[in-house]
Each structure stands twice: as structure tokens, then as C-alpha cells.
Design a binder for these strands. Structure first.
Lengths: 330, 330
DNA sequence: TTGTAGGCGTTATCAC
DNA sequence: GTGATAACGCCTACAA
């Protein structure tokens, strides 16, 4: 910057003003400086600016893992939204491990980012304290309510209710759920199960515990495994609600292997609308959770906070949609 | 740092020594300092360190997009490998657009990263000059050979030959390829096509141009579309080689929709071994390209370069493996 | 083994 | 409108 200033015959401050688009600069001066910049191929030192301003222009995104298609697609959307706002994204994977999720919140890396978009999977209401951090934070999902931070989420209960209702509308009555988490009262698993129960109740269908299959991590493998256990339990089933698409795709896999017709014998619906859902055989009906909207809103809120927005903390709920495809089409 | 030094009764330099694990410190001194750090909850200012050292501890990863499962899984592996080496990863998406890929190389964001792992999809040999950058660079894939940078890749030709040979071993003779890029002489498409041709030649099978289907971006949708065009051309086909798994999964989709038995009538093999390949119906045979190894090697090389390694530029070729699943199992 | 001085490249302040 | 100067918080000499 010194060199540029010298070559242009101005002070460093003027150079700084030019590169920062400070409005009150004489056109002639600006031109001189820009010519010097071009001539010397000068590039601003971001580290120095960061030090001075206390900002990095980087936001963190902490999620379970990119191998899970939903999170890969979410990350894609977040990066795009961030780019539109002139910030870049540092991704950290927690592996859905509670210790790792707690660590992310206090990590040294938080120094590197101006704020964090956090999608926890293992934290629960007992970890509320840990989320009281001194940097801008936007939490995704519904695991932890009511803290002093911004929240972007979807209406899990209502969406799961709609998915179940869709199956009921097709005449299904023995609807299984795979991927349930016993004992949880928060988190997607619990909330979606609630929606499922609500739909059954609203249609006067008794809830049968043998139709609720536990499953830990929501991978395809888990869905395949849950479905095997379900079928081998001998209970009657005419539909399966996978609490996410990966589970539902795993279910399709098992059903296919056992030559069970979908949707003829058993209809299947998932949740997330990942890209695979459009290309599986059969294609998978699912809930589209408004991923783009979630990403855009989260980035927008975070950037606003970083900019010193003193608004009260918000909780934004995105829209969802039932997407009917072959796996439930009669 | 001043405050810590004052509280511990030492100089700032000593504090610095402690936090940087400088070896020659009296245990008593170290303890005093650590106590003061804990008491004040002191955190080092990374920006200041970056300014002083000229390093950020961040590496860039530029790839087409995270929605493509192969790249999502690659990013996952890169982040893990980077974590093991104490660096974090900033991901940029190029959308496989040439302009965007060129821009990534000179972007202001390069100031923020100590080096870049770059997986180009649109650049070709004519862009060699653009890759001559003044920061550590590791290029993935085989689009551009022989420049002054490190290269981590797989043996596309040999792997494609093995995939084709696998189909031939199953008695297939009318083997189609989907996703070819006419006119390209570099890049995965061209190299894999070369391997395909080599296998046919080695087995005395004539190459039939009507079996080579063009397809631009390697998404599922493209694979589905290529397969439709292939079938509607009326040519005889008993196997399809998708130049990546997404294409092959798209093919499975179309074949399923048309009630064509896989592998009974048509066998299908892909390339990449993404997670979906294990859970499609039928499960997809494919080439496992050693993704973990590629990621680990790329990070390792980049970190070595950043550390000032003056070794000559290397080209590392990872191992691959044919994975046989239902889509080719007789 | 520890302390002191100086500078890394910017931007903010406040004159002019 | 533009310039001089002092921080931002750390690390690398070099000295003690």
C-alpha cells in the first residue's frame, strides 16, 4: 500500500479510501491510485485488514457430515447464499457426536469466523448453556428451543403429519415409522414421530408400537436394517414412513431385495427431498423442507447479526411441501 | 497477552512461548502462565498471528458442487484429512463453469488460504498458464498434465478398461457408454472412453459408435436422458457403462421405468463408488477410486508445500478397485 | 531461560 | 478531499 501511495503520489490513507470505495474522492485522485494499483498488481492483505477490523469475512458451518446427502445439499445452498452476501464458508464436521458438537462451539476456530451456522444432531435441551456463546450464532433444526440465539427451522411436526396423512389418503392403515429415537423429546426424530401420531389420531387409527422401529443414525444402512427388522417381526405393514430420505431409500433397498412391490404391497415416503429421491427406483415420495429458504434465511440472519443487528432473537420456520412420486402413487 | 503476562508476572514473550509450546521453558513458569491464561480465559488472536506469520491455517478446496455426491464425499474426506493435520477447509463451488474455475485461481480469497486443492472440470490444456500461480496448489483429476504443480489423480484409463473388461467377462458384447464428451482429449470423459476402447480392442470386439452416448454434466438426470436416447435409437444393447455413478444411477432409473431387467437384459456399471451405489435397486457395480487415499494424499502434499517443501512436483496416482454388485452379477 | 524493541499492512482519528 | 500518526495483537530478532 505504501508503494502504491508513493507511485500515485498520495498518502496510504487515500489508497485505502480508494480500495474501500470511500465516496468523497476526487475522480482524478482515484484514477491515479487505480493506475498505480494496476501497475504494481497490488493486492490488499486480508490478514492485516482482519486484524484491524476484527472481522474475517468467513462464517462457519458446522454439520454432522457431508456424506449425508441432505447436509451436502444444505452446504451447497449455504455456500451459494453466503457468496451472494460476500462471505465465504468454513465447514466443520461433527460426526453427530455430542462431544464434537460441544467442541465446535468453543473451538479456537471460532476466532477465524465471524459467526456460526450450527446444525446440531446430538445436543439436547441439557446443553442450552453451551449454546450461550459470545459470537453470532444461528441454530438450525429444532433440537433446542428458546435460547438467546437465532433459530431457523421447519415445522417438523406439521410436515410429518402431512406425510402420514398422504399415506392415509392412499388407503394405508398399517403405517410403520423407521428411524425413531426412543427417549428423545426434542429433535427431528421426536417431533416427526409426534406428527405421525397426530395424523393417526386425527383419522381414528390406533397407534401400534410394533410399527415404530428404532434406528440411530439416519443413514441408508440404518433404513435397510430397520426395514428388515420390521418385516421379520411378522407384523402387517402396508406403508413405511422413513423419518428421512436416506432411511426411506434404505427401506426401498430392502423391499427390492425381498421382491416386495412398492407401492403395490408397501408404499414408502421419506423426508428431505434429496436429489436421490427423484432418481431411485421407484422414485421416492417425500417432504421438501425448503432447503434453499432455510440456507438463505440462516445466512441472512447471521450476516445481519455480524453487522451488529440488535434485533431480538428470531425463530424462522420455513415452508414445506409434500412431493408425491412413484413410491406412494396408486 | 499483555494482561496474561502481567498477571503471571512474566513478559509477553514468555506467554507467547508457552502458547506456542516452545520447548525451553521452566515448568514453574509454564504453570504460572497457564494459570493466568485460564483465569483470564485468554484466547490468542488468530488474525494477529496470521498477519505476523503470513499464514492462516486455512486451505481452500475448489470443486464443482457439493450436490454431486462424489464431491460431497471427497470434501468429507478432505476435511477429515485436513483436521488430522491441524488445518481447516474453505470450500468454493465452481459449478463446473470455466470462467468460475479460472476466477477461483486468482480470487481475493486466495489471500485467506495458505494453499488450494483444486478439482477442475471445465479447464483444459489451453488453461495451463492460468494454473501457474504463486501459491501452493494441488490439482485433482487428469484434465491438465505436466504443469509445475502437484497432481493427485487416479488411473482413469486403466480403471475404465477394468470396468469394461468386467462386463465382457460376464459375456456382454454390446456395451454402451453414457456421458461421453466429444472433442475432448483430456479429462475423465476422454480418458475413461479410451479405457473402454482398449478393453474392446483387447477382446476383439468392434467398436460401434452408436453405443457411445454423449452427455454433458454427469448428473443423474443426464444418465437417465442418455439411456432414453440410447434405447430409442433402436440399437442392441446388453450392458451400459456409466462414466460415473450418477450417470449409471440415472440409467438404472430409466431402465426401471421401462421395465427392463438389470442385469438380466442389460448390465450396468458405474464409476466412483458413491454411497448410493450400495443402496440403489439393484445395487450398482462400480469402480472404487480410492477417494480417501486421494484426499489424504492431496492434503499431505499441500501441507508439505505450504511448509516450504522444495521437492520437485509430484504426480500421485491412487489405486482403484472393481466392485461387483447386483447390477452386473449374473 | 526470559525480556525489549520493532514491525507485519491496515484502518480510525483528527488535523489541515 | 487528503495526509500524518497511532493503534490492532502477535512474533522474530537480539539482548540480557
Amino acid at each position: 500500500m505504501h508503494d502504491v501511495a508513493k507511485l500515485a503520489g498520495v498518502s496510504v490513507k487515500t489508497v485505502s479510501n480508494v480500495v474501500n470505495d470511500y465516496p468523497h474522492i476526487r475522480p482524478a485522485t482515484r484514477e491515479k491510485v487505480e493506475k498505480a494499483i494496476a501497475e504494481l498488481d497490488y493486492k490488499m492483505n486480508i490478514s492485516a485488514r482482519n486484524l484491524r477490523q476484527g472481522r474475517t469475512g468467513i462464517i462457519g458451518l458446522a454439520l454432522p457430515e457431508l456424506s449425508l446427502p441432505y447436509f451436502a445439499e444444505l452446504a451447497d445452498s449455504v455456500i451459494r447464499a453466503a457468496e451472494a452476501r460476500g462471505v465465504v464458508v468454513l465447514i466443520e464436521q461433527t460426526g453427530a457426536d455430542r462431544q464434537h458438537e460441544l467442541e465446535v462451539l468453543t473451538s479456537e476456530r471460532r476466532q477465524l469466523t465471524d459467526g456460526l451456522i450450527f446444525s446440531p444432531l446430538a445436543l439436547g435441551p441439557e446443553d442450552t448453556e453451551a449454546l450461550k456463546v459470545d459470537y453470532p450464532l444461528v441454530v438450525l433444526g429444532e433440537r433446542i428451543f428458546g435460547g438467546d440465539w437465532d433459530h431457523v427451522t421447519m415445522n417438523n411436526v406439521e410436515a410429518a403429519r402431512a406425510a402420514t396423512q398422504h399415506l392415509i389418503d392412499q388407503g394405508r392403515r398399517r403405517i410403520a415409522v423407521i428411524g425413531a429415537h426412543a427417549g428423545e423429546t426434542m429433535g427431528s426424530a421426536a417431533l416427526r414421530l409426534l406428527g405421525y401420531q397426530a395424523a393417526l389420531a386425527a383419522n381414528g387409527i390406533p397407534m401400534d408400537p410394533s410399527l415404530v422401529v428404532e434406528g440411530g443414525l439416519w443413514h441408508r444402512a440404518t433404513g435397510a436394517d430397520c426395514t428388515t427388522r420390521l418385516l421379520e417381526s411378522g407384523t402387517t405393514v402396508d406403508a413405511i414412513f422413513g423419518l428421512n430420505d436416506a432411511l426411506a431409500l434404505g427401506a426401498l433397498h430392502t423391499l427390492h431385495a425381498r421382491r416386495i412391490d412398492v407401492p403395490g404391497e408397501i408404499a414408502v415416503i421419506g423426508f428431505d427431498d434429496i436429489e436421490d429421491a427423484s432418481y431411485s427406483s421407484p422414485t421416492l415420495s417425500t417432504i421438501a423442507p425448503g432447503r434453499e429458504q432455510i440456507a438463505a434465511t440462516a445466512v441472512e440472519q447471521l450476516v445481519a447479526r455480524i453487522g451488529g443487528d440488535g434485533e431480538p432473537f428470531r425463530r424462522v420456520v420455513s415452508d414445506f411441501e409434500v412431493v408425491e412420486r412413484e413410491s406412494t402413487r396408486v
